[in-house]
Structures are given as C-alpha cells and as structure tokens.
Design a protein around this nucleic acid. Structure first.
Length: 430
RNA sequence: GUGGCCGUAGCUCAGUCGGUUAGAGCGCCAGGUUGUGGCCCUGGAGGUCGGGGGUUCAAUUCCCCUCGGUCACCCCA
C-alpha cells in the first residue's frame, strides 16, 4: 500500500457527510454547526459575549491555574518547549480566559464580565467513546461577581442549552467545597480519618492522602467508597458564608425547576474550585457520562498573579458529548446548507452563461452552484439533488434564444418558465 | 500507562473446516429517457482480505510479531 496520511489518534475530521470516512468522523459539519448555533443563541440571551483566546498558552499558566497535582497537568498535557519557552496546547479554557481578563484589565471596561467561549482543547489521554485528544468545549464565565446569583445564572445557562436541544435525561449534581478557611480544616479532618486506614487505600489514593485528600472523595473503588461513608463530611466544617451561599444556589436552582442532587463527594478534577461545584451527567453517554461541569473559582485569579481577588464562576461543556447525547435521542438534525439555486446548462455557450449568471445571482445574496463542465442534464440534476438545492435553472439553446429559463423546484417537483431578468425573484421566495 | 474485542470494496458486513477468476447490500459512474433528480431496470469501476515474517505443494483463512481501530480502567468535556 502506498503511503497515505491519517489524522492523529484521538482527533477527527468534521466533514459534510461522515459516511465518507469511517476512520475519523463521528459527526457531520452540519450537525456541528447546528450545535454551535444553538449554543450561541442561548448564551446570547444571557448577555454573554464571546472571547477567543489562543490555543497555545504558557505551560506555567496552565500548571498553576489548574494545579500541579491534577491528572490534567501531571500526565495529560501536550506540552513542548522552543527557544527556552514552555508551551502547552490548552487542556481547558477557563484559565486562559482569566489570563486574558487580567492581562487586559477587563474589569475596567465592565465590573462584571459575562463571557462565553467555544473552541478546541487538547488532552493526551487514551481516546475512547466521547473522549478525544482534541476535543471541543464551550463554556461561560461570570467574572467579578461573588454572589450566588451568578452561580445560578451560569447553571441555568448551561441547562438551557441542553433543554433547547431536547435533552431531558440528565442529572445535575451540586456540592459546596467551602472556602479558603473551611476547606483546609476539612482536609485535615479527612486526612486524620483516613490515615489509620492507609493500608486499605489504593496506590493513587495513598499518594493523594498527603497532597490532595479531597480527590479521594470521588474514588470509584467500592471499598474506599464504603470507608468514606463514615468519613467526616464537609458540611460539618463549612463556614457559614459558604453555607449560606450554597443554600441560596440550591434554592434558586430548585425554583428554576432544575432537578438536582446534593452530592457531598463531588470534588472535580481541577484544583481551582471554591464553594460551588457542579456536574451535569447523562446516562446516555456510556462511560464518559459528564456532559458538562463547572463551579466557582474565587482563588484562581490570585493564583495567576492578580493583586486583587477576582470572584468568578463558570461552566465548561463538551461538544462531542453533547452531539452523542443528541444523537442518542435519534436527533441527527443538521443545518441545511444546500444552495438556493443550481444552474444546469446544456452546451458550451450555456455553460458560460451559467457561470456569469451564478455570479450575478450571488451578488444578490443567493447561494448558487453550477456544473463546472459539460455533463448530461440528468447528471446535473442528480448533482443538484444531492447538494440539496432548492431550484434548478435549466438553460440550453432554446432558453438562450428566448431569454426565458426553465426553472424546476426540486422539492415540489414542479416546473415553470421564468425570464432571465426575473431570475433574482427566486431568491425572495420563502 | 493497563486490559478486552476487532482489522475483507468508499460504507456496513458475509465468506473460505487452507485449494483455481474473494462476494452481497448501500454508495459511486454510465446507459435505459438524442434536454429532466429523488423510484425502477441493466451494466461498469473499485480489493496486493491492515503490514511483515513463519508453517505448507498452496495462506485472506493456521502461528508469531507489528501497526491501526475500538471499548473499558484511571480521570474527565
């Protein structure tokens, strides 16, 4: 076999029709664009403005922001160095957004920034269903507001997107991680409780015992889960402000008619969360059940060098998983990007006329496709049909003589005669 | 990083208990309709049966290695 090239493992091409390439195309570009439109429409209703940051970021930003001890930073980064600078392909977008917010003093423009983003992220994990090495996230952040209503807005915005797409089979899990006063106390208590059971813990949990106790809470190991049943709960240590904050979030989420469960073991894999943490899961996704997640990260800006604390809250969601969830519902809808008009021509003179006429119709705003070489009318109409064109304009010697085109409505299978000068009116029909 | 499963046409997959020209459906191209798509009929193109090595008179089939894919663990979007 001669040498050919393939997409890199864990990445995929987004092509018009995935059936053409089994290797690397879980979704069509039409499905993809449709999701992006829904996302943009919903976040727009919340007043979120788009921010686009580079895919390449300083390694240090990500390491500090997300946390050295997280799985993401310790083993999943695509990082490299060049000219004495360490780079990383961003594994998530919250830290870059906060970096941009601080760098551009965005609080000066607007005390409370409401931003959304959408774009690719990279993590060097073994790919499987719903998990890719280049994947795509969208998310929203409310930066500069400490109060619980910001949390509620973010959660409502996130849930609205899924509702808009007809996804109802999902579970929202909420928890509060306390703040910088209560969390260390809880960590210490948990450590104290687990220490005597050290030998019953898995290898990873044992190392977390020292440096990242909270992560033990979301272990999937049944023995460890049993052990944790009697462990001290964070709710017993939580400071009153965080408690009030959490209660208001729960109350308002409940009032919004969004079902949720309080999961005291929810901690999330990124270190920067404080107080509110949440995850949205779907049972339709297989092993990768997390559709989206997020929370409050009041300490992140400080961690990234800000002199003033910057309270913020946000969510991040995976487009691939959203697409899987949507197609599990049997919804494979895609945007219809077929042209308005396909010009079929017969003969060399007509072909040239078609090219010129297409240009004229395009300047009127129409999407127009022509055959680019002489072909049988049958082949051209088949082409038009496959492209999902609305109308076919058929022009041969007769039509050129009379300056009246034969126009076929490809959806209704009806046909009519339209003078050349009136062809632009086709574009005004609904 | 670890484990299970799978690699035959563009796609989905048959098949060969080792034996001459490897099949189907869908898709693609053409013709049936000297200028009419989606239905129907006919024909055609397209495969070194993932790659390498071994056993054998003979390997797509059996064995080994390798590459690739996929699902799962871990963790997350």
């Amino acid at each position: 076999m001669s040498k050919t090239y393939k997409n890199i493992k864990g990445t995929f091409d987004i092509v018009p029709d995935p059936s053409i390439s089994k290797d690397a195309s879980p979704f069509s570009s039409g499905q993809w664009i449709r999701i992006e439109r829904v996302v943009r429409d919903v976040v727009r209703r919340y007043g979120m403005q788009e921010i686009r940051t580079p895919i390449l970021e300083p390694l240090d930003l990500i390491a500090r922001g997300i946390g050295q001890l997280t799985d993401i930073v310790s083993k999943e980064m695509f990082a490299f160095s060049r000219d004495n600078t360490d780079y990383v392909l961003r594994p998530e977008i919250t830290a870059p957004v906060v970096r941009a917010y601080l760098q551009h003093n965005m609080s000066q423009l607007l005390p409370v920034q409401q931003l959304f983003y959408i774009g690719p992220c990279f993590r060097a994990e073994r790919p499987q269903k719903g998990r890719y090495r280049q994947f795509h996230q969208f998310g929203a952040e409310i930066i500069g507001e400490p109060g619980p209503m910001a949390d509620v807005e973010v959660i409502r915005c996130m849930v609205d997107i899924y509702k808009e797409l007809g996804i109802t089979n999902m579970e929202l899990r909420l928890n509060s991680l306390g703040d910088e006063t209560s969390r260390p106390q809880y960590k210490a208590a948990l450590q104290e409780y687990l220490e005597p059971h050290r030998n019953d813990l898995s290898e990873t949990s044992r190392s977390r015992l020292e440096d990242n106790v909270l992560r033990i809470l979301d272990t999937k190991n049944p023995d460890e889960q049993r052990l944790l049943q009697d462990a001290p709960r964070l709710s017993a240590f939580i400071d009153s402000e965080s408690e009030d904050h959490f209660n208001i979030v729960c109350e308002m989420v409940d009032k919004a008619g969004i079902p949720f469960v309080h999961d005291p073991f929810l901690v999330r894999g990124l270190d920067y969360y404080t107080r509110t943490a949440f995850e949205l899961e779907s049972p339709d996704l297989g092993a990768q059940s997390a559709l989206a997640g997020g929370g409050r990260y009041d300490l992140l800006a400080t961690e990234l060098g800000s002199k003033n604390p910057v309270p913020a809250v946000g969510f991040a969601a995976g487009i691939e998983r959203l697409l899987i969830a949507v197609s599990e519902l049997g919804d494979t809808a895609a945007i219809d990007d077929g042209p308005d008009i396909y010009i079929a021509s017969l003969g060399d003179t007509a072909l040239k006329w078609a090219i010129d006429t297409a240009a004229a119709l395009r300047s009127d705003g129409g999407a127009v496709v022509t055959a680019l070489a002489q072909k049988s009318l049958k082949a051209q109409l088949k082409d038009a049909s496959k492209r999902n064109a609305r109308y076919a304009i058929i022009v041969g010697e007769d039509e050129l003589q009379s300056s009246v085109a034969t126009v076929r409505d490809l959806r209704k299978s009806t046909q009519e005669e339209i003078p050349f000068a009136s062809l632009p009116t086709l574009l005004k029909r609904s």
